[in-house]
Nucleic acid binder design. Sequence first.
DNA 1: GAATTCCCCTG
DNA 2: CAGGTGATATTG
Length: 477
Amino acid sequence: MLEADTTHHSTHLSGLTLEQCQSARLARDNRFDGRFFVAVKTTGIFCRPICPANLPKEANVEYFAKQVQALQSGYRPCLRCRPDSAPGSWAWKGVETTFQRAVNLIDQGELQSSNLPELSSRLGISDRYLRQLFQQYLGMSPKQYAQYQQLMFAKQLLHTSNMSIGDIAIASGFNSVRRFNDAFQKKLKLTPSDTRKTTRADTNAADATVDKHLRLSYRPPFNWDHLLAFYRKRAIQSIEEVGEDYYARTFVSTHSQGWFKAELGAKNTLEITFDIDDITQLKHMVSQIRRLFDLDADIAVIEQHLQQTAIGPLMTSGLRIPGVWSAWEAGVRAIFGQQVSITAAITVLNGFVSSLDETEESGVASRRYFPTPTEIVNADFSVLRMPQTRKDTLKRFADYMVDHMDAPPEDWLALKGIGPWTVSYAKLRGLSQPDCFLSTDLVIKKAIADVDDQKQLIESLSPWGSYATFNCWNSQS
DNA sequence: GAATTCCCCTG
DNA sequence: CAGGTGATATTG
């Protein structure tokens, strides 16, 4: 009789049997996270299957496929597992990703411009707890981890750049060459200059140039021409420049600004020429450039996976995810691109960007930076040739970003005029997430129109949906 | 390491 | 709904 009762509730489910739900929740199986929700009758609260709270008795639970169904039935979301937050948002993912985010930020050299308390508050936890997490996951303190990271970065620079050892010391986050030498010696059992000597065959130093220079490596296949063509079509004047065989752009981040140029080098490397106002931010710049050109992707594995799916025939080898400097920039580009062709969007965006600093001196600014949210908030929208509703969206977006520069793009959905396409586009190009298949994009729809089972196709692309996106786009142009 | 917060169960 | 419990995440 109890049996019959619970079975009745399985009608709320889709695609899962009651038994699956039961064992999934008992095991807190994270593979089922997000696929259904557990509501507890005695408390009126509903949870994700992975909720760490005490397991409720089977007799007291009710299963739902969607949050809204549980809400509709009078349950409130649990405060621990946050079933109300959007899947993929930071609140949804919990501590492990908080930790992962901390590691990423440190890898990007964030600790060089802020301290631990600042870093932790940015992640929404106390510095005490962050220390605890590092101890738990890595067995060392954040500071120690950061120092290893700094040394590895320094070692890489010694091998691949023409910078002086003094500059490298500072760039890696040390405050003096002495402390740098000391730490290097201690941890890597070598002196910095020895490290450099062993790999100094090239002639970069002989070029009578003062340009700073470094090399970044990647694993082939690497389709540079596709990247260039993609950027060329979307280049914003005097921020980006795409030549026959190089890409260059300016950038602004919170702590630095500068410029770089990338061109193909020998032996699977990219040659970077750059200038940055604050050399301690070099690590940040480098990780950004690696992300922009997707240098860390293991393309062979990805392609092997996608070859077996229905889009296999559309694939071109070596395609990477062409990134833009920030989620903010990607969001702006996406808003300009809503409902219009790429060319039209870029023309309007170009006009808008160049109107921003016309108040400045000599009329023609030869080099600009991508506008900040504040600049756009204060901009004159009257010169903008696009529908009023889209201007309003842009304004709202900029307003929001002034205070929420690193909120996850999912959160933008709360803003009127910003929908799933815009959010996915930002995750794809601004954050370079690997699994964003833009199934609602018109060009994509066209590319996969022949496939019978679309739903199955989309599932089969995971976790490399982003690469599928670019291969589809590429196949249609 | 204690204290707090949160959830679930029972009466 | 109040009172008792176990368990986890997080903080001072």
